[in-house]
Simulated assay, not measured.
Amino acid sequence: MNKIFHDGKYYSELEIKEIVKRYYQSAFSRKIDRHVQMQTLFPDTLDNKSKILDYGCGMGGVSQLFYDRYGCNVDGVDISENELIKAKIAFGDNAKLNFLLLSQFGFPKNTYDLVFSSQVIEHVHNPGNYLSNINNMLKNDGYLLIGLPNIVNINYLINLILFSNKRAIKTSKKILNSYNKASDHINGWDPFHFINLCSSCGFELVKYIPTEETPISFFLQRIPFIGKYIYRLPFTTRLSYTMFFLFKKSKNIKININD
């Protein structure tokens, strides 16, 4: 039986199936998890006739979620063959749920009702081209549901305060010698500038939510009586680890190589 690499170790197919399903069962059961919070942004227009692209599907759990909820056609695409192997083991391929390697994906135009992409754009060298490709793949009035880290959080601010020339040089050498596209972030946005980026690529914002709040907001909401009000203040809720945006395709946009 083939062994599959996961989190630094090799496992059997049966073990991988259990690991992947257990991971998503845990994620989907926690109210503060981004996998749960982002579901509030699913468009009401989705049904069993919809076609959805999970762009950067990883181990396939969200692809399966869309398939289970709507019974629609879902394509899960990823750069990692190893992640796709795990997705196929855990959730399988069928006529409506397909997992494909990005290098073999055709980027079909005017095809999808929704493109979902979470924790991907921060790894992309050409964000404008990435968003332009999504724009072209969406049908007119199709939706983009996208999630990414929020740089306006406590960890980022602390790292910024502690940043020095010595640490900068060390970071540069590390990335130069051991850059890993799947794990290293090369882009970062606050909500305001990310909206600017997406709108310049033809998308109109429908709704934005901060997700996976920071420890400071996590504890504030537990203060008796007043906690829930303090927690809702922009200063606390906007210091989230991650954020999700629902955009609607408004214009056909093509970003040129030199834009």
Rank of each mutant, 00 (worst) to 15 (best):
residue 2 N to L: 11
residue 4 I to L: 08
residue 7 D to R: 15
residue 8 G to L: 13
residue 11 Y to E: 06
residue 15 E to I: 09
residue 19 I to L: 15
residue 20 V to L: 00
residue 22 R to H: 04
residue 25 Q to K: 10
residue 25 Q to P: 00
residue 28 F to K: 05
residue 29 S to V: 07
residue 32 I to N: 15
residue 37 Q to S: 09
residue 38 M to P: 02
residue 44 D to W: 00
residue 46 L to C: 07
residue 51 K to L: 01
residue 61 G to W: 10
residue 63 S to V: 06
residue 63 S to G: 04
residue 63 S to Y: 00
residue 64 Q to H: 06
residue 64 Q to W: 02
residue 65 L to E: 07
residue 65 L to N: 08
residue 69 R to E: 04
residue 72 C to N: 07
residue 73 N to A: 10
residue 78 D to R: 02
residue 80 S to R: 07
residue 82 N to M: 10
residue 88 K to D: 09
residue 91 F to Y: 13
residue 92 G to K: 10
residue 103 S to L: 03
residue 103 S to N: 11
residue 106 G to F: 01
residue 109 K to I: 10
residue 113 D to L: 06
residue 115 V to A: 09
residue 119 Q to C: 12
residue 121 I to R: 02
residue 124 V to W: 00
residue 128 G to W: 04
residue 135 N to P: 12
residue 137 M to A: 02
residue 138 L to C: 12
residue 138 L to W: 06
residue 140 N to L: 10
residue 140 N to E: 15
residue 141 D to C: 08
residue 141 D to N: 14
residue 149 P to H: 04
residue 149 P to T: 12
residue 162 L to C: 10
residue 164 S to D: 02
residue 164 S to C: 05
residue 165 N to I: 02
residue 166 K to N: 11
residue 167 R to D: 00
residue 168 A to T: 03
residue 172 S to W: 07
residue 177 N to E: 13
residue 179 Y to C: 13
residue 189 W to N: 04
residue 192 F to E: 09
residue 193 H to W: 04
residue 199 S to V: 05
residue 203 F to D: 06
residue 212 E to L: 11
residue 214 T to W: 02
residue 220 L to Q: 06
residue 224 P to E: 01
residue 226 I to W: 04
residue 234 P to K: 03
residue 239 L to S: 14
residue 246 L to H: 09
residue 251 K to Y: 15
residue 254 K to Y: 10
